[in-house]
Write a protein that binds this DNA or RNA. Structure first.
Lengths: 229, 229
DNA sequence: ATAATAGTGTCTATTAGACAATATCCT
DNA sequence: AGGATATTGTCTAATAGACACTATTAT
């Protein structure tokens, strides 16, 4: 039996799209319009396009960006997107064997309101992690979400992902709020500030023009020293 | 067009199997016996078994353990195995679209000599990272290896993976040698010792009976406080 | 005795965290 | 003026890293 003749699974990409709104970590779910799980909330995603013969189709990252745009309307270029795990348990899709490569996406709060239902999606909605309707989640998406959340929590300290969840220019308090929303603890403003200023000294962050006016004392604003779109 | 009717990719698992021998980080490659890349060195691995209808086949982790045993003869139960990335670039297999879910495995040096060629493999061999025959590597396996190596280097400090690469009972110097082999730097014995003793204090590691006789001064030996097979 | 490695002690610099105090800005 | 937040200062404990030193054992 040749390799080409083995039965094959379907392969999909699923997206766990995070943002921080109202000082809370939220993720974007879509309401399914078709069976299975019609009417349930699911992660945005879809099948990877696999060509035939000479054209072998799109890459995984490409598929993820395409689904992001198709189903949520978010501008793929401005969104941080990273693959984190493949889920392939037998039976996770009742129709057939489906292996899903999962990505997490980080969307700045400025962009979050622009998510709209597209493709074959009935609606989109930002959910707090705690308010997810556990009983109405499609497939094994609850498990995928749990893995994604623990992954970004673990990466919070060792990477600069928090900077992807903040407006283009931001105050120290705003970045602190993102950290607090993600890991659920509160940070001392003075101590957080010192760590932050080290990042400025390291050249990762720089002062930006303008100030943040919140109704109280004004704060300096900063920006990530890296081309953002 | 129904979901079931889309063209599908083949899905494989590939294993990057590490051990530490002669104070050097090594990985296990197999020599291919069939085209494509017949005669080349490749990562152990193979296609995921996908059933039909009611039986949807084996899980990804299951497939990884199966291939580990089939192709290398290593005892799957005693090997640390973790998925780290899916590779799916179009064209990475000339025959057809193949998406490969990659795992890294950590094998204690006691077990490493028991690797033998099995299945449709012509030979197995432990390679140092630096002596890999770059020109004779199959598919995109060089890239997969690079990602795996950088991943375990990054995890070295935040996890206890080094403990998977050491004999059942080990001296502090042996664990230090593993760290040095993986990240390529040397550690001050005194400072490394202090960090190590904190792990003992935390209950992660405990003293083991016996001593390590190296020809010089004898060293105490320790063991990971966790059932090992 | 010597060489080599195991193991101890000490000093400095960096960092996290707790917390007090001051500065600025809006109402 | 008063409340809230930004910002600065100070103290303590934990840790990494450099490095000198002592202890043990094979040869």
């Amino acid at each position: 039996m040749k390799a080409q003749d083995y039965p094959r699974p379907a392969v999909a990409v699923d997206l766990v799209i995070f943002t921080v709104l109202d000082a809370d970590l939220k993720l974007l779910m879509v309401r399914r319009r078709e069976d299975p799980f019609s009417g349930c909330w699911a992660l945005p995603g879809g099948f990877v396009r696999v060509g035939a013969a000479a054209d072998q189709g799109e890459d995984l990252d490409e598929a993820a960006r395409r689904e992001l745009t198709e189903e949520t309307g978010l501008p793929a270029r401005s969104v941080f997107l990273e693959q984190f795990h493949a889920f392939g348990r037998a039976g996770r899709d009742p129709r057939m064997r489906v292996i899903s490569v999962a990505y997490y996406a980080l969307v700045s709060p400025e962009l979050a309101p622009f998510a709209v239902a597209g493709g074959d999606v009935a609606a989109v909605r930002w959910f707090s992690l705690s308010e997810l309707p556990a009983a109405e989640l499609a497939f094994d998406h609850a498990e995928i979400i749990a893995v994604a959340a623990s992954r970004i929590r673990r990466s919070l300290d060792s990477t600069s992902i928090a900077l992807e969840l903040v407006p283009r220019s931001f105050s120290i308090a705003e970045l602190r709020a993102v950290h607090e929303a993600i890991d659920g603890v509160t940070h001392d403003p003075a101590n957080f500030r010192r760590r932050f200023l080290r990042m400025v000294a390291d050249g990762l962050i720089e002062e930006a023009p303008g100030q943040r006016v919140t109704g109280k004392r004004r704060a300096k604003v900063y920006r990530f020293r890296r081309p953002r779109t």
